[in-house]
Design a protein around this nucleic acid. Structure first.
Lengths: 144, 144
DNA sequence: CCGTATCCAAGCCGATACTG
DNA sequence: CAGTATCGGCTTGGATACGG
């Protein structure tokens, strides 16, 4: 189960080094983009749009992203569009039709998130064990 | 310039497939753990604790994680401890001393986050360009 | 030194109602 | 169909004060 550590593994220090070459605005945007990953809906929405190989309509996306409200989906899609992760195409028809498509940049982001997600999913029992041990020790969890 | 796409590249569908083998609780915890990554302070705190090669005291961490409040740092550290990402050792001294250390699990998580962070940082100009283009389009004109 | 307790402001997000 | 508008509960996190 345990993989051998690759020599080419990136160290966090290398990241920090690279990030220091960024302007303050660029650094802030980097954090903001990473934030998308844990955004309640963004990643799920992206993966839904990406999974189907053709443009998707608003209502169809909403069916697949279970539990999202219309308002949140609109907001999520606008944000993704603004950052170039999906495209939005409006057709001047009645009734209106709007189609969303994943962009190359969006696919790239999904590809980069995937390994992390998989590692996390595969490590989940370890996290559960740590939590159980912590809670058994009877330590008070930090209050808000 | 562009790297050739590896065949072994993970697809999002494979992730979904694996995640379906998880219980609901495990799936929820996976999301929660991924959320840490974009948590305002967690990752920064972890990287600070990890960067220095010796146990760090509370006050020292607070110096390095610029802008964090005492309350937020306490909460962040407790959460990281609970999930097994750092350890917390209290010394029965006066004045009190508490030392924090990164765990193997914590290092592993940082290693898995690193590539994504680096990709994001290196892609930041593209995101900026997309935003600028979007904002320049302004409010969508009805015609065009 | 290392926290906890309390207050409060801001933002997220669901529910609901309405529009072109 | 694909939004926009409004409300209100809930969470987040900073400031401040206090405790062991």
């Amino acid at each position: 189960m345990k993989k051998s550590v690759k020599k080419s593994k990136l160290s966090w220090e290398e990241i920090a080094e690279f990030c220091e070459t960024l302007t303050e605005a660029e650094d802030a945007l980097t954090r903001e983009m990473v934030s998308r990953i844990s955004d309640k809906w963004s990643l799920w929405t992206m993966s839904v749009v990406a999974d189907i190989d053709e443009p998707m309509r608003f209502s169809r996306i909403m069916e697949h992203v279970e539990g999202i409200s219309q308002k949140s989906l609109t907001k999520t899609l606008r944000g993704l569009e603004r950052d170039g992760l999906i495209t939005r195409k409006v057709f001047a028809e009645v009734p209106p039709r709007v189609e969303y498509t994943i962009t190359a940049l969006g696919s790239e982001m999904l590809d980069n998130v995937a390994p992390l997600w998989l590692w996390t999913a595969k490590s989940v029992q370890r996290f559960q064990a740590c939590r159980a041990a912590f809670d058994d020790r009877g330590v008070q969890p930090a209050r808000k």
